[in-house]
């Protein structure tokens, strides 16, 4: 699967390149010179030529990712959330988010990520370290089941010792029962 994705990426990149080259190749090689001399030239040629040119310029060329820091700030990857004392991936939004994460990771095949397991402060510290490990790995396993290469995913558990958000209320607890995605390399 990964190889297919990679090959596809290469094909797309190659065709984009070919298209770019092809369009330029149609132009007469010394571009400015003929323009100046163009006055007497046959009219149909200049008319047809400008039409494809703006299309090529407007079409987004090869997409690129910003710096790793910028990627993490922009939040391309969606985190997943858990019920109290649970590490199962819930039906609905969390699975949809993971599916979108998997697609994104397959599109950007060189990206590496770390999944951080967090827990809310109402559990015990020691067990929460294990629970955070289970949560991070549940998210990892789900991505792997959707075709993301396991070697691209590192996991770490912070239990409740480095909470994602500070706070001592329901909202903070819900925010901290999460597997948080961090891009570590692009």
């Amino acid at each position: 699967m990964t190889n297919t994705v990679r090959s596809l990426g290469v094909v797309l990149a190659s065709s984009a390149l070919a298209f770019t080259l092809g369009c330029c190749a149609k132009k007469p090689a010394p571009a400015p010179a003929p323009e100046v001399q163009a006055a007497p030239a046959p009219t149909p040629v200049p008319v047809t030529e400008p039409t494809p040119a703006p299309i090529v310029e407007q079409a987004p060329p090869v997409e690129t990712l910003p710096d790793v820091d910028e990627i993490n700030k922009k939040g391309y990857l969606k985190d997943v959330f858990f019920d109290f004392d649970k590490y199962e991936i819930r039906e609905g939004a969390d699975r949809d988010n993971l599916a979108a994460d998997a697609e994104w990771l397959k599109k950007w095949a060189t990206v590496k990520i770390r999944i951080e397991g967090h827990c809310d402060e109402r559990g015990t510290r020691q067990y929460n370290l294990a629970l955070g490990d289970k949560r991070a790995n549940a998210a990892k396993d789900y991505l792997v089941s959707l075709g993301v290469d396991a070697s691209r995913i590192e996991t770490i558990s912070y239990g409740k010792d480095r909470p994602f958000v500070e706070g001592h209320n329901e909202e903070a607890w819900a925010q901290n029962r999460r597997a948080h995605f961090v891009v570590t390399a692009k």
Binding site: Q126, L129, A130, D133, K134, A136, N137, A138, K140, D141, T155, S157
Partner: peptide, 9 residues
């Protein structure tokens, strides 16, 4: 200690 193997503590 509690060690994790393949995501299992």
């Amino acid at each position: 200690f509690c060690g994790s193997v393949k995501g299992n503590p």
